[in-house]
């Protein structure tokens, strides 16, 4: 019986996953631009800008299926464990690595959780700004998680991933998405350099991500 429910849940997760990919593709006609890396099966941490709840879905949906299967987004547990449906989608459809953003409450260190996921062979999608960016600046200052990951697993490629337009497709507080075109640009990977300070590395990572912005967005 238990096995049966487990199979049903896995099947449901598969169906919902394909449904979400299809929906995201219909609405935003997303286009992946592999500017600095090829879409090949290599362990990576895709670190992306975060302006909308939709990025989560999109950054995952736009990957080719064979990469998507091995890629887990990193997400906030306070959002994704709020109710059963979210827990199902977050945990079983996206297979997200759920981390607690509140230092006082947490029992497990987020970096350890992410490292454990890397050691299982997964790639990660990470939003190093930590929060959704609502302001006029293109990026918020990065939190330190990316640095700690880079120092603990220095061989993994850190791929800057710029998601363009999504804040206009689904601004905060809106429910119906606008069907505008969206691009996701994957830049050249970076790695932590020997003796590089935390601050210098995070600055370099921010710049690498900003360099992936399309010209049309920079112009405005």
């Amino acid at each position: 019986m238990k096995r049966l429910t487990r199979l049903t849940r896995r099947f449901a997760a598969l169906v919902v996953g394909h449904g979400l990919v299809l929906f995201a593709r219909l609405i935003t006609a997303p286009r992946a631009i592999w500017a600095g890396v090829e879409p090949v099966a290599k362990q990576r941490i895709y670190f992306a800008n975060h302006t909308s709840n939709g990025d989560f879905v999109l950054a995952w949906a736009v990957l080719p299926p064979h990469l998507r299967k091995k890629t887990r987004p990193v997400a906030a547990s306070d959002y994704w464990l709020k109710n059963k449906l979210r827990a199902f989608v977050g945990g079983e459809v996206f297979r997200a690595v759920l981390i607690n953003r509140e230092k006082e409450e947490r029992t497990e260190d987020p970096v350890d959780l992410m490292v454990a996921a890397l050691d299982e062979g997964s790639s990660l999608i990470l939003f190093p700004e930590g929060n959704r960016n609502m302001g006029p600046d293109p990026l918020l200052p990065f939190r330190t998680g990316l640095y700690h990951l880079a120092s603990k697993r220095p061989d993994v490629d850190l791929v800057p991933t710029w998601i363009a337009n999504l804040n206009e497709i689904l601004p905060k507080g809106e429910v119906i998405p606008l069907p505008l075109l969206c691009t996701i640009t994957y830049g050249e990977p970076i790695h932590l350099r020997r003796n590089e300070s935390k601050e210098a590395f995070l600055k370099r990572a921010e710049k690498a991500l900003l360099d992936q912005r399309p010209d049309t967005e920079v112009q405005e």
């Binding site: 006609a29 206009e168 601004p171 809106e174 119906i176 606008l178 069907p179 505008l180 075109l181 049309t216």
Partner: peptide, 21 residues
Amino acid sequence: REFLTLTAKTRADHWSLLLSF
């Protein structure tokens, strides 16, 4: 969709753009 992707807009236009489509 191609056109409005490139035009000027802010969050305040969300409804007028939805109406357009």
